[in-house]
Design a protein around this nucleic acid. Structure first.
Lengths: 150, 150
DNA sequence: GGAATTATATTAGTAATTAATATAAGTTTC
DNA sequence: GAAACTTATATTAATTACTAATATAATTCC
């Protein structure tokens, strides 16, 4: 909480606030198909890395391993993912994201990009430029957060 | 989807990506007390405006009015909110966020600020400055999104 | 004053989640 | 190389969260 180089602390709170509000806008994007929050989260996780074993998925989401087993069972029944055994380790089940599952994540991603674009158009060119210049730093910030996760 | 002034489209996708990744980092912040996603969302909504009537809350969250009635009942039982009748309109119930409920949101907010601070410290001064300069524009972006919601 | 509307509550059924336990494959140790 | 331990997934039973449909009651609008 100590001041951070020459950036006053106030900025962090404002940044967090903006982030919080934007999150609210996108988290509950109404989809045509209804999926629970955890379902979407698992699909999203798999969209970043597939296949993954159940244990990895369990570690990523804040639910029990049993919930993941059942969720993957439902996802497999609905044709969004596919279970495959690991030839190296007979205990392991690899969960693969397949086409129909990936389509769900992709469409939500496009929807999100479209809404951000619409919001950006309402800003002044200077504001747009300020955000544009910050994007590489924001990417780095996000990458750091992702990596630092155990 | 057409190019937007002199900012190439690529930026929007990158911005959305960074945003998406950062969201993942914070959405599942493990709390000491366990509350469902919708519970936290309702508390957060109330932290921005309290009191609110059930109908308003229903419109904000993507759940049914029945779910809100039941959720508010649980929140009231747990001492996080308080129902009060509206003297002007006998049909209305005003839901007030009270101390213990506000504390939950405040503590999560502080946790979020602390984590963002920690991430920012890993960036170069130039990157930090780029984000700092974009914060006012990000705030405006978030405000626009908030207002434009019905 | 009766009809339509608005705001909340109730009920009954379904889906999602957890805690606890089971099964089975791998690893280690002596 | 077998007993003890650890790791990975599955199963079961109970609980919680959610929806759809319907009820109740106050308000508004001719």
């Amino acid at each position: 909480m100590k001041p951070n180089h020459n950036q006053p602390d106030m900025n962090v709170a404002d940044f967090a606030w903006a982030f919080e509000e934007l999150t609210r806008l996108f988290i509950r994007l109404p989809s045509i198909e209804k999926h629970s929050f955890t379902t979407l989260s698992v699909l999203h996780t798999l969209s970043r890395k597939s296949p993954m074993r159940l244990t990895e998925l369990t570690a990523n989401e804040q639910v029990t391993q049993s919930a993941i087993t059942q969720l993957v069972t439902r996802l497999e029944r609905d044709g969004l993912v596919q279970r495959k055994p690991d030839p190296k380790d007979g205990r392991v089940v690899q969960v693969h994201l397949i086409e129909q599952g990936r389509a769900i994540i992709d469409s939500r991603r496009l929807e999100r990009i479209a809404r951000i674009s619409a919001l950006l158009e309402g800003l002044t060119p200077e504001e747009q430029q300020a955000i544009g210049l910050a994007v590489p730093a924001l990417k780095r910030l996000a990458e750091r957060g992702t990596e630092s996760r155990p």
